[in-house]
Design a binder for these strands. Structure first.
Length: 425
RNA sequence: AGAGGAGUGGCAGAGUGGUCGAAUGCGGCGGUCUUGAAAACCGUUGAACCGCGAGGUUCCGGGGGUUCGAAUCCCUCCUCCUCUGCCA
C-alpha cells in the first residue's frame, strides 16, 4: 500500500500516477486519505494526552500507597474513572479510524514509474524490443501445441480432468521429463547468476496474502483450503517475499536475491475464453521465480538486470520474443513498472506471455514492514522486485510449435543434457 | 493427536503488581591507548506513532480481561521444545 506521507508530500505526483492508472476520482480518493490521517492524528493527540494524565495519577497513587497515605490514594482513584472510560472510547475511535484508513489504502494501486505509458489495456503496452526470427512453418508442420501433445502423447488434459478438473494436465513420458529439464535448467542458470535457491511452502496464511497484495481483493484468484484459512499460492512471489515480512535488514544484506521453483495455482475465475486452449492457461502450472529485495537507489538497476537475465534464458532456448513495457491500465495493481516478455508461438501465430518482471518499490514493503537500516542508521522501506524465470507451460507450447518438423519436435540444444533425448517423436 | 514445559531487546538471559523500555553478559557502533591490530578501559546501542521542540503515547509471541497501575495475575489463540502416539 502507498505511504500516507508520500501522498502528502507528493500530492501531484500521486495524482498523476492514479490518473495513469485510470483510477476514478483520484483527487477525491487522495484527499480522503489525507483527511482520514489527519483525523487519526487528532484522535491520537487527544488519547495520548489523557493517557499521560492517567499514567501520572497512577504513579502518584503508587507513591501514596508506599508512604502509607491510603486515604489520599483512595481519593485520587475516584478521578481516574472518568479518564479511563474516555481513553477507552478514544482508543476504539482510533482503531476504527486507522482500520478504515488502511482499508482505503488497500484499494489504491501503486503509483506507476514516470516512464510508464498512459493506456487503457494491453493494446497500449509499449513494445520495447523484438528479438529472434519468427519461424515460418511449412504446411503440415504448423500445428498448435494442443495437437502436438496429443500426437506425441506427452501431455494429457482429459486424464487431468478425470483426476481433478479442467486446467490440471498430466504430463507423461517425455512431456514430464521436459518439465523437469526446464525446472533444472532454470534453477541452475539462476544459481550461476547469484540467486540463492529456496523451497518455500506452497500454502500461505492470510497475513502473507495481504503482505504481497493478493488479499484483500483477489480472493477470486487463489484457491483456499477449506477450514484452514490457508491459500494455495498463485506464484512463489508470495511465500518468498513474505520471508522478509516484519524484518529490519542490515544494509550489507542488500541486495537479497532468491530463486524458487514452485507449482502455482490460479482459479482464473471468469478468465476463460476461446483463445485459452491447451497450455495457454492452466489452474496449476510450474514456475521458477526470482525475487529481489534491494536498496531503493538500486531497484531500477536490479529490474533491468532481471529483465536481461530472463532475456538471456529465452535466447538460450532459441525462442523468438518481444519485451513489453506495460501501460498504466494493464499493469498489476501493486507494481510501479512491469516488463512482460512474450514468446512467439508459431503454431498459433500468437505472442504468449512467459514472464512478468516488476518493481514494486515500497508498495509491498510498506505492507510487509520490510525495512533496512540505512546509511544514516534510519530504518527505511526496502524495494521488492520479482520476475518469472520462467513459467513453464507457454515455454513448452512455444518449443513444441516452433520446432516441429517431419520426424518430430527438435529440442533446444541447451536442454538436451537435461532431457536425455533430442527429439520428441 | 495426547501430556508437560517455554515464548522478554541482534543473541544469551534476569525480572513474578508501581521507581521496568526492561539488570547483566555477548555482539554492534564510537572513542582512549597502539606504527597497525588484538587486549584493556570509557561511552553508546530496539521499534512505531504524535509533536517545531521540550516531550508524550504504545510495544516484553498475538488477542481479550482483572486493576488506579500488568513483562509480572486471569482467559484465549499461535509458535517452539520434551515425552507418548501416528505417519512420508
Amino acid at each position: 500500500m502507498l505511504q500516507v506521507n508520500f501522498i502528502r508530500d507528493n500530492f501531484n505526483l500521486a495524482l498523476e500516477g492514479l490518473r495513469k492508472r485510470n483510477v476514478e476520482h483520484p483527487e477525491e480518493v487522495l484527499h480522503e486519505v489525507l483527511q482520514m490521517d489527519e483525523e487519526r492524528k487528532n484522535i491520537q493527540l487527544e488519547r495520548d494526552g489523557l493517557q499521560a494524565e492517567s499514567n501520572s495519577i497512577s504513579k502518584k497513587i503508587g507513591a501514596l500507597m508506599k508512604s502509607g497515605q491510603k486515604d489520599e490514594a483512595e481519593a485520587i482513584k475516584q478521578r481516574t474513572g472518568a479518564i479511563k472510560s474516555q481513553v477507552k472510547e478514544l482508543e476504539e475511535k482510533y482503531d476504527t479510524t486507522e482500520e478504515s484508513l488502511i482499508r482505503l489504502l488497500y484499494t489504491i494501486p501503486n503509483i506507476p514509474h514516470q516512464s510508464v505509458p498512459f493506456g487503457k489495456s494491453a493494446e497500449d503496452n509499449e513494445v520495447v524490443e523484438k528479438i529472434g526470427e519468427i519461424p515460418q512453418l511449412a504446411q503440415g508442420q504448423d500445428h498448435p501445441h494442443w495437437e502436438l501433445i496429443k500426437k506425441y502423447d506427452i501431455i494429457d488434459f482429459e486424464l487431468g480432468a478425470k483426476i481433478t478438473g479442467a486446467g490440471f494436465p498430466v504430463y507423461k513420458g517425455k512431456g514430464a521429463r521436459l518439465q523437469r529439464a526446464l525446472v533444472n535448467f532454470f534453477l541452475d542458470q539462476a544459481a550461476e547468476t547469484g540467486y540463492r535457491e529456496v523451497q518455500p511452502p506452497i500454502l500461505v496464511n492470510e497475513a502473507s496474502g495481504y503482505g504481497t497484495g493478493q488479499l484483500p481483493d483477489k480472493e477470486g484468484q487463489m484457491y483456499e483450503c477449506a477450514g484452514e484459512n490457508l491459500f494455495l499460492i498463485p506464484t512463489a512471489e508470495v511465500p518468498i517475499t513474505n520471508m522478509y515480512r516484519d524484518e529490519i535488514l542490515r544494509l550489507e544484506e542488500l541486495p537479497i536475491k532468491n530463486v524458487g521453483f514452485t507449482p502455482c495455482f490460479r482459479r482464473e475465475a471468469g478468465n476463460w475464453g476461446a483463445h485459452v486452449r491447451g497450455l495457454n492457461r492452466l489452474h496449476q502450472f510450474d514456475k521458477v521465480e526470482i525475487v529481489q529485495v534491494t536498496h531503493p537507489d538500486h531497484s531500477y538497476q536490479a529490474l533491468e538486470e532481471m529483465k536481461a537475465y530472463v532475456k538471456q534464458l529465452l535466447d538460450k532456448l532459441e525462442l523468438p520474443y518481444r519485451v513489453l513495457k506495460l501501460c498504466g491500465g494493464d499493469m498489476g495493481f501493486t507494481s510501479a513498472l512491469t516488463y512482460d516478455l512474450e514468446v512467439f508461438a508459431a503454431g498459433q501465430g500468437r505472442w504468449l506471455e512467459v514472464s512478468s518482471v516488476s518493481n514494486f518499490e515500497t508498495y509491498q514493503s510498506n505492507r510487509l514492514k520490510l525495512r533496512f537500516k540505512g546509511e544514516d542508521k534510519k530504518t527505511v522501506l526496502a524495494h521488492t522486485l520479482n520476475g518469472s524465470a520462467l513459467a513453464l507451460p507457454r515455454i513448452v507450447a512455444a518449443i513444441l510449435e516452433n520446432n516441429q518438423e517431419d520426424r518430430g519436435v527438435k529440442m533446444p540444444k541447451v536442454l538436451v543434457p537435461y532431457l536425455g533425448y533430442e527429439w520428441i517423436d
